[in-house]
């Protein structure tokens, strides 16, 4: 199985996230970037499938120059090679534009499976895996908490609100994975050294055959009209439990008609 893992660099969860004052996009320059946490599970799952059944793992990322840090991390975990789709024209792409660009880039890499984290921790839309399946005409196996690769087929357990669905499809397939599907490995020192020598291909819009007017802020089908910092919440009432904390909370709930 040849696998492409799509990873994204996002602002560190603990950093104060901001939007650019000029074009209302996520400010990626002023904060530390990290690999989207859920993508670590995707990389780990790809490596486990490769270790069990052979093939090659390619990392694909779309993002500005500094995203190469996230590529290096995936390579140091054990991925074989990487493709970095980087072009100023991609800046501000929404989900529709991003899925188009990624699908084009995926067209340049031979693969049986595409694996992604179920969402990015910055945009949190959780739609790109489904959109990629639609664009590629591949089977959609998303929200996987378990992945079993067979001969030309893949079976997953799809996490639902009430439990899980068992879903099976032939390859090629697009898989998204949830947290806790596995325990992502830490890069070893040897892995970090080896990563520096692994092949990294850079693609521009033209290289990937991406039409410039379908990506970036101009090619996106959604427009952010207005952004406002949330007004600080009015301080609530805090009481110290002096043996009647539960009763007081019940009284509050009753006053709000919850009881």
């Amino acid at each position: 199985m040849n696998i492409v893992v799509c990873v994204k660099q996002v602002p560190d969860t603990w950093a104060e996230k901001k939007l650019s004052a000029t074009d209302k996009t996520v400010d990626r320059e002023s904060v530390d970037g990290v690999m989207n946490e859920l993508d670590e599970y995707a990389v780990e799952e790809a490596l486990r499938i490769k270790e069990a059944s052979g093939g090659e793992v390619t990392v694909l990322t779309m993002g500005p120059d500094k995203s190469v840090e996230t590529i290096r991390k995936a390579l140091s975990m054990g991925a074989d090679k990487a493709v970095h789709l980087v072009d100023a024209g991609l800046h501000g792409s929404d989900a529709l534009a991003t899925s188009y660009a990624l699908a084009k880039a995926l067209g340049t890499i031979e693969h049986d499976l595409v694996i992604l984290g179920v969402e990015s921790t910055d945009a949190r839309m959780s739609v790109v895996p489904a959109m990629l399946a639609e664009r590629l005409g591949a089977a959609q196996l998303t929200f996987a908490r378990k992945v079993e690769v067979g001969d030309g087929t893949v079976k997953i357990e799809r996490l639902t609100d009430t439990g899980y669905d068992v879903v099976e499809a032939p390859t090629p397939a697009v898989i998204s994975v949830v947290e806790k599907i596995n325990e992502p490995r830490y890069p070893s020192f040897k892995g970090i050294m080896a990563a520096k020598k692994k092949p990294l291909t850079t693609l521009t819009l033209a290289d990937a055959g991406i039409e410039a007017d379908k990506v970036g802020l101009g090619g996106s089908a959604t427009t952010v009209a207005d952004v406002a910092a949330r007004p600080p919440k009015q301080a609530g009432q805090i009481v110290k439990d002096e043996g009647d904390g539960g009763t007081k909370l019940a009284e509050f709930l009753a006053s709000q008609k919850f009881v």
Partner: peptide
């Protein structure tokens, strides 16, 4: 979490929660 609350109780949940449930 207390920065977000409309109502908060500072105390041991093992005392507060059973009392709350009983009161409800």
């Amino acid at each position: 979490i207390f920065e977000l609350v409309d109502f908060g109780v500072v105390g041991d949940l093992f005392n507060v929660v059973p009392q709350l449930t009983e009161e409800i």
